[in-house]
Simulated assay, not measured.
Amino acid sequence: MSVLAAIAVLAMLIFVHELGHFMAARLQGIHVNRFSIGFGPILWKYQGPETEYAIRGIPLGGYVGFPDDDPESEIPPDDPNLLRNRPILDRAIVISAGVIANLIFAYLLLVGQVATVGVQDFDYQPGVKIAQVMSEETAAHRAGIQAEDIILQADGEELGASAQAVRSLMEIIQTHPEQVLELQVQRQDETFRVPISPERDESGKGIIGVQLAPHGTLIRHRADSIPAAFGEGAVEFQRITVLTVQGFGQLIRNFRETADQVSGPVAIVAIGANIAKSDAGNLFRFAALISINLAIINILPLPALDGGQLAFLLIEGLRGKPLPTHIQDGVMQTGLMLLLGLGIFLIVRDTANLGWVQQLFQ
């Protein structure tokens, strides 16, 4: 059920994106002849007065079709309500509407989470928790440190109740290889001091052989009122959007180092399934995050994406006329093949990394 929930979230976000294109066209009186969710074989189809609505077997995309280039269309090629015959601004609104729809939907999802189940937060307590001692051969084990211990001080520095406490302790340990550090440790109701000498790793940094975790408890915060929910949702939307844009910037600047962090639909569904299984309330934020990612990816000026079509419109506006059709078609087809190739690669890689798949080959 958790996998189905994650697939439903992904399909819903695709539907919202395509609905944005569809509504932007229909509200302007532009002809639309197809509205499809998914690719591949048709599972359900309905023919309306003008538009064919379909659900297809592979829920990994969708499209809104226009009769402009449909050889079977009976609409005259000079009809003013064909997309290609509309002014640049009208076409830009249709092309960008999917991105706008995803952003608006992400914001509404976050407002809904704040207003209903609440946003998950962490109530930090002083110190850093020892989540695990890696082995008996580590400096931590020799010093008598145990899992669930709380490190309150390191080298005389207080580790306060904040998200930075773990980072502070790591930096102290890493910068003192083969030097004696004094840790103040809390174990249940007892507090005592432990001298420890971090070992030097291959990079020359100090390590003590533990996994660290923030000290505190997870809490959920709900807005006190509907207006407050819209305000807090806006703050959360801005935070996630900024972090996502920064992540894309880092990916572009350091592609070799970060390329393995790019996830395809299989990995996204797996992550969503784990979230649904552990805490279904977080599906709100998961869906909002994916929706924001879809918006940012689609607005990139790459062939076969919305941003690529907007780039063609910009060139048309600067030139006073569109690029020749064969050039546009060639660029779009090349971009589509590259995106399909990347998609297949990510699906194969992420499927191979699934736990149950790896067990088949052990």
Results as ranks from 00 to 15, higher is better:
Gln120Met: 14
Gln120Trp: 02
Gln120Ile: 10
Asp121Glu: 15
Asp121Ala: 15
Phe122Met: 09
Asp123His: 11
Asp123Tyr: 09
Tyr124Ile: 00
Tyr124Trp: 00
Tyr124Cys: 01
Tyr124Glu: 03
Gln125Pro: 00
Pro126Met: 01
Gly127Ser: 09
Gly127Met: 04
Gly127Glu: 09
Val128Ser: 03
Val128Cys: 03
Val128Pro: 07
Val128Gly: 04
Val128His: 05
Lys129Thr: 08
Lys129Trp: 11
Lys129Leu: 15
Ile130Asp: 01
Ile130Ala: 00
Ala131Val: 06
Ala131Phe: 11
Ala131Pro: 06
Gln132Asn: 13
Gln132Ser: 13
Val133Ile: 11
Val133Leu: 04
Val133Thr: 03
Val133Cys: 03
Val133Met: 02
Met134Tyr: 10
Ser135Lys: 05
Ser135His: 09
Ser135Asp: 14
Glu137Leu: 11
Glu137Val: 09
Ala139Tyr: 10
His141Thr: 11
His141Val: 08
Arg142Leu: 12
Arg142Asn: 11
Arg142Trp: 05
Ala143Asp: 08
Ala143Glu: 06
Ala143Met: 05
Ala143Pro: 01
Gly144His: 02
Ile145His: 07
Ala147Cys: 00
Glu148Val: 10
Asp149His: 04
Asp149Trp: 01
Asp149Val: 06
Asp149Tyr: 03
Ile150Val: 13
Ile151Trp: 00
Ile151Val: 07
Leu152Gln: 09
Gln153Met: 13
Gln153Gly: 05
Gln153Arg: 14
Gln153Trp: 12
Ala154Glu: 02
Ala154Met: 05
Asp155Gln: 12
Asp155Ser: 10
Gly156Asn: 09
Gly156Phe: 03
Glu157Val: 11
Glu157Ser: 10
Glu157Tyr: 10
Glu158Asp: 14
Glu158Leu: 09
Leu159Val: 04
Gly160Val: 05
Gly160Leu: 11
Gly160Ser: 12
Gly160Tyr: 09
Gly160Glu: 13
Ala161His: 01
Ala161Asn: 08
Ser162Tyr: 00
Ser162Glu: 06
Ala163Phe: 13
Gln164Leu: 11
Gln164Trp: 08
Ala165Met: 07
Val166Gly: 02
Arg167Thr: 14
Arg167Trp: 10
Arg167Tyr: 12
Arg167Gln: 14
Ser168Ile: 13
Ser168Leu: 15
Ser168Tyr: 03
Leu169Ser: 05
Leu169Ile: 03
Met170Gln: 15
